[in-house]
Computed example of a mutant assay.
Amino acid sequence: MTQVKMTVNGKEMSGDVEGRTLLAQFLRDDLELTGTHIGCDTSQCGACVVHVNGEAVKACTMFAVEANGAEVATIEGQANADGSLNKIQQAFQDHHGLQCGFCTPGMVMSAAALLKDNPKPSEAEVRHYLDGNICRCTGYHNIVKAIMAASGQDVSAIAAE
């Protein structure tokens, strides 16, 4: 067992893990942050996206020991300080960017990374960026619309699907 320490959503956290423990498992099982979903364990679906040192990563393909000393942000840390939804979460709600919700944490975390790097992405750029996130319920249209709305762009002319 190896002790890992990291800052998760602004709080110092630690735990003992085996070398093969994935970051997603550590977050869910040890830290009880179950918003990070595990959908495939093969880096295909994107439901486990978190931010490590400011970069979006798929937590099912990173060992917890690799995040030792890192700053980790999960979906649980995305709300505003008063507990209200942040602009991306609110846009997902307002524009029906979720259905069953399983992929939503990974989509929101990916969207946050995209908007950090590209504050006003085009529809094509959003679709390209989400290439590693799978949603089995929607056609991505409302997810893309929500992300563009969160960026402050006018999406009123985009028809609902």
Results as ranks from 00 to 15, higher is better:
37 H>T: 04
34 T>Y: 05
94 D>W: 03
158 I>G: 05
115 L>S: 08
139 G>R: 01
36 T>R: 05
148 M>W: 07
86 N>T: 09
147 I>N: 02
136 R>S: 06
50 V>N: 02
23 L>G: 10
59 A>T: 01
83 G>S: 08
38 I>Y: 03
154 D>V: 12
93 Q>F: 13
70 A>L: 10
48 C>H: 00
53 N>H: 08
58 K>Q: 15
131 D>V: 14
11 K>T: 13
92 F>S: 07
99 Q>A: 09
39 G>W: 00
112 A>T: 13
4 V>L: 13
8 V>I: 15
28 R>Q: 01
23 L>W: 02
143 I>T: 03
26 F>Q: 03
157 A>N: 15
78 Q>K: 11
109 M>D: 01
50 V>Q: 06
110 S>F: 03
20 R>P: 04
94 D>Y: 00
144 V>C: 10
69 G>R: 13
122 S>K: 09
71 E>R: 13
90 Q>L: 09
116 K>I: 00
86 N>G: 13
63 F>E: 09
105 P>V: 07
149 A>R: 01
111 A>K: 01
159 A>Y: 02
66 E>F: 09
146 A>T: 06
57 V>D: 04
33 L>G: 01
121 P>H: 07
36 T>A: 03
101 G>N: 03
66 E>D: 15
93 Q>H: 15
83 G>T: 04
123 E>N: 13
17 V>G: 11
21 T>W: 04
137 C>G: 06
10 G>D: 12
128 H>C: 02
122 S>C: 11
109 M>I: 06
76 E>M: 02
146 A>M: 11
5 K>G: 13
28 R>G: 00
108 V>Q: 02
145 K>P: 08
119 P>M: 01
33 L>K: 01
15 G>V: 07
151 S>D: 03
14 S>V: 09
4 V>P: 14
158 I>F: 09
19 G>T: 08
2 T>E: 15
100 C>F: 04
120 K>Y: 09
150 A>I: 11
80 N>D: 15
